[in-house]
Computed example of a mutant assay.
Amino acid sequence: MPAPASPSARLHEDGALDALFALGQPTRLRVFRHLVTIAPNPLPAGGIADALGCLQNTLSTHLAILSRAGLITGVRDGRSILYAANFDGMRGLVNYLLEDCCGGRPEVCAPVFEQLERSCGCAPAPTAGS
């Protein structure tokens, strides 16, 4: 039986699970990907609903789940909330997933980071032992 995770590692794992759960639903994945494509420009919920052909009343639940998972941010603008992709949240998820990449040989994971950098400029920095 594996040793129990430390409290800080457990919280990190819980955060990764929350983010993966949030992205594991088709509408939420489409919302996140859409916000990435229009970054850094935020959109109100109505604009997201229109762009994706979603009902606004169900979209608010999806936005709340993505926000709690740290994948999007919402900023109040008058009576509206403007939503944007949270690249720091996605970096955290990618870093967690690749933390022990290739048995501590970061050069093996370099192509993954290089591809992220080329595609969006949001590559996480490889860390020692990853």
Rank of each mutant, 00 (worst) to 15 (best):
Q115P: 00
A19N: 00
G46Y: 03
E117W: 08
G70R: 04
N95E: 11
R79N: 07
A84I: 00
G89K: 03
L29M: 15
S6A: 12
L23Y: 07
N86F: 01
F87G: 11
I65N: 12
A19H: 01
T73M: 06
A125C: 01
F113Y: 15
G89M: 10
G121D: 03
E99H: 11
L66I: 09
A69M: 07
E13Q: 15
P4E: 03
D100F: 11
A128V: 14
R76V: 10
V112I: 13
P26I: 07
P106S: 08
L29D: 10
A125V: 04
L98E: 10
V36A: 07
L29C: 14
D77Y: 06
P26V: 10
V108Y: 15
P42K: 03
Q25G: 04
I81Q: 03
D14V: 09
H34T: 06
I72K: 02
P2L: 11
S8C: 05
G74Q: 01
R79I: 05
I65R: 14
G24F: 01
L59Y: 15
G70Q: 03
L55V: 07
G104H: 14
T127W: 06
T58N: 13
G104R: 13
I48K: 10
L43E: 08
N95S: 13
A3R: 13
Y96V: 04
G89L: 05
V108A: 14
R91F: 01
N41H: 09
P4S: 06
R10V: 02
G89S: 04
L63D: 00
D18S: 14
E99A: 15
E13T: 03
V36Q: 06
R105C: 05
M1D: 06
R30W: 06
M90Q: 03
C102V: 09
S80E: 12
A128S: 15
P4F: 02
M90Y: 00
A9F: 07
N86R: 03
R10T: 09
L98M: 13
C109L: 12
D18Y: 14
R118D: 15
P2A: 12
C109R: 09
L17A: 12
A49G: 04
E107Y: 13
P126G: 10
A110D: 08
G46V: 12
G47C: 10
S8H: 07
V75K: 08
P126A: 12
P7V: 05
T37V: 07
A69Y: 01
D77V: 11
G104S: 12
G47R: 14
G53H: 06
G74K: 01
D77N: 13
V112A: 13
N95F: 12
Q56E: 10
R76C: 05
V108M: 13
D88C: 01
P40Y: 02
A85Q: 08
I48Q: 07
G15K: 06
G70K: 02
A51Y: 12
I38D: 01
L11F: 05
L66P: 04
A64G: 04
P124V: 09
